[in-house]
Simulated assay, not measured.
Amino acid sequence: MLGGLVRACLVRPAYAAKLIRSGTVWAPEVTALGGYRLFGGDEPDLARRAGVPDADEEYEALDAGTRRAFGLGDPIAEQGEKSDLHGGTWSIRTYDGLRGLKVNVAAAPSSAPADRRADTADTYAWFARHLANLEKGQSLLAVTAAIYVPAQQAAALRMLALQFGVEVETVGVVPGEVLPALAQSFGLSQYLATPSSIPSHAIILARLRLYNAPAGDRPQSQRVGGSGGGDTRRAHSWHRRP
Rank of each mutant, 00 (worst) to 15 (best):
M1C: 13
G4N: 01
L5T: 12
L5P: 09
L5D: 09
L5M: 11
C9M: 03
C9P: 03
L10Y: 00
P13V: 07
Y15W: 15
A16P: 07
A16Q: 09
A17E: 06
L19E: 05
I20D: 06
R21N: 11
R21F: 08
R21T: 13
G23T: 05
G23C: 08
P28C: 08
P28H: 12
V30Q: 02
V30I: 15
G35S: 10
R37C: 11
L38W: 14
P44D: 04
P44I: 07
D45K: 13
D45V: 12
R48F: 11
G51T: 04
V52I: 15
P53Y: 06
D54L: 14
D56V: 11
Y59E: 07
A61H: 12
D63S: 15
A64I: 07
G65F: 07
T66P: 06
R67H: 06
R67W: 06
R67P: 07
A69T: 08
D74N: 11
D74P: 10
P75V: 14
G80R: 03
K82V: 15
K82G: 08
D84V: 07
L85I: 10
H86M: 12
G87V: 12
G88C: 05
T89G: 05
T89F: 03
W90A: 00
I92F: 07
I92Y: 01
R93V: 00
T94N: 01
D96V: 12
D96I: 10
R99C: 09
G100W: 09
K102M: 13
K102F: 03
V103F: 03
N104C: 09
N104W: 10
V105H: 05
S110I: 02
S110G: 02
S110T: 07
P113S: 00
R116D: 13
R116T: 10
R117E: 13
R117A: 15
T120D: 05
T120R: 01
A121G: 10
A121W: 09
D122S: 02
F127N: 02
F127M: 00
F127W: 12
A128P: 01
H130Q: 15
H130G: 02
L134H: 02
G137D: 01
L141A: 07
A142M: 15
T144R: 09
V149G: 05
Q152G: 04
A155W: 00
L157I: 03
L160A: 03
L162V: 04
L162Y: 03
Q163V: 09
E167V: 08
T170S: 14
V171W: 10
V173P: 00
V174A: 14
V178E: 10
L182M: 05
Q184K: 14
Q184V: 11
F186C: 06
S189Q: 07
L192Y: 08
A193H: 05
T194F: 07
T194H: 10
P195Y: 02
P195C: 00
P195M: 06
S196C: 04
S197C: 01
I198Q: 06
S200D: 06
A202T: 11
L205G: 10
R207D: 14
R207L: 12
R209D: 08
R209Y: 14
P219G: 02
Q220G: 10
S221I: 12
S221A: 15
R223A: 06
V224E: 02
G225I: 08
G229Q: 14
R234D: 15
S237W: 11
W238D: 00
